[in-house]
């Protein structure tokens, strides 16, 4: 509980110095929770399955973005457009998730670093496709998506035609993204239900001990792949929800930070590399984004430079992950040597 408490205090101090009104912050937080919760949620299943923090959700985010690019190219709009994007993104996410799972099965014990490098690698491929091939090898109907030179997607794509199409579905005049929250709650319930099924039980067993699980006849590799597929698909949906809420799409940057911010959020909420529940997801997302809102202004007011606040929140994101990883593996190593000495004293 120490980590969240520390960040609660930090946020309160930041809030005080930012000079922002509670009303404004509340509005912002509602929006940001709606935008980010599904992305953070996508980390849960791999953690439970013992695969650590899945930085590979970047690939899921890419799948979501491919969905967006497809509907923009074909001119689908509104909620229908959003649904089609989901339909396009989901199979891509399943395939990518399967590949990520396969690769992580070859790198047992170092899933985190591997999934991270995999994210960087996939980013290279993504750029290759959408900067170099788009418009040249891959024909585009909608020329507005392309740069003036005719090849490569623009850096930013306007998503006004699908903006808030989920948020405001059925409640077109509400200032709050009600439908998105409904979906988020449904997805949380979905995860809860999956964990209560036999497959969920197998995931927990694999997460605790791959060896015992496999002796009991559980197909460990397959279970791990399923976990990563679920995670990747959720990340794709999460990215779509994020983008329809934002209304603009940074073609080459949006996905890059997805893994970093989601992982930092879940850790700030008090999750660890091998333990998590929905409470940590919600609390962590809340705290991380609260810090996001207040830190530039607090930086401005304390040090006279908004840029410092900007740097500070990036530092927080990296630092939290670094410290969490250090503490986790320190604990693990201590446990190992403690066990040895403990037995000795008893014998």
């Amino acid at each position: 509980m120490l980590v969240p408490i520390f960040f609660i205090i930090l946020s309160i101090v930041g809030f005080y110095f930012s000079g922002l009104t509670g009303d404004f912050v509340f509005q912002q937080m509602i929006l940001r929770l709606a935008r980010n919760l599904v992305l953070v949620m996508s980390l849960m299943i791999p953690i439970i399955s013992g695969m650590g923090l899945n930085f590979g959700i970047v690939l899921g985010a890419m799948a979501g973005q491919i969905g967006i690019i497809v509907i923009m190219n074909n001119g689908y709009t509104g909620f229908n457009g959003f649904l089609i994007a989901v339909l396009v993104a989901t199979p891509i996410a399943i395939i990518l998730g399967y590949l990520v799972g396969k690769i992580l099965n070859k790198a047992k014990g170092k899933e985190m670093i591997t999934s991270m490098i995999l994210g960087f690698f996939a980013n290279g491929i993504y750029q290759l496709i959408f900067i170099i091939f788009a418009g040249t090898l891959i024909p585009f109907k909608n020329k507005d998506l392309l740069r003036s030179s005719g090849d490569g997607l623009r850096n930013t794509i306007d998503l006004i035609s699908i903006k808030s199409s989920l948020d405001n579905l059925l409640f077109p005049n509400s200032p709050y993204p009600i439908m998105t929250f409904v979906v988020i709650i449904l997805l949380f319930v979905g995860i809860y239900l999956i964990l209560k099924t036999k497959v969920g039980q197998e995931m927990r067993a694999v997460g605790q001990s791959m060896h015992i699980a496999s002796v009991s006849g559980i197909d460990v590799d397959k279970t791990r792949i399923i976990a990563i597929i679920i995670s990747t698909v959720l990340a794709a949906w999460g990215q779509l929800i994020y983008l329809q809420n934002m209304g603009t799409f940074n073609t080459y940057n949006n996905h890059e930070q997805v893994g970093l911010f989601a992982v930092a959020s879940i850790l700030i909420g008090g999750a660890s590399v091998n333990k998590v529940s929905w409470k940590e997801v919600v609390l962590g997302t809340f705290l991380f984004h609260l810090l996001f809102i207040v830190s530039p202004l607090a930086g401005q007011n304390i040090a006279g430079d908004a840029q410092i606040g900007e740097y500070f929140r990036v530092f927080i994101a990296y630092g939290v992950i670094g410290v969490a990883l250090i503490l986790h593996s320190w604990e693990e190593n201590k446990k190992k040597s403690l066990n040895l000495n403990f037995d000795l004293n008893n014998s």
């Binding site: 239900l193 999956i194 099924t197 036999k198 039980q201 067993a205």
Partner: peptide, 28 residues
């Protein structure tokens, strides 16, 4: 209990299980 029933869990049919016709997606 969970250890005794490991990989031999009792399940009862649930929506997900029915939809996929898979025992794996039945509730414990």
């Amino acid at each position: 209990t969970e250890n005794i029933k490991l990989n031999r869990e009792n399940t009862k049919s649930s929506l997900t299980g029915k939809l996929t016709k898979s025992n794996k997606l039945n509730r414990l």
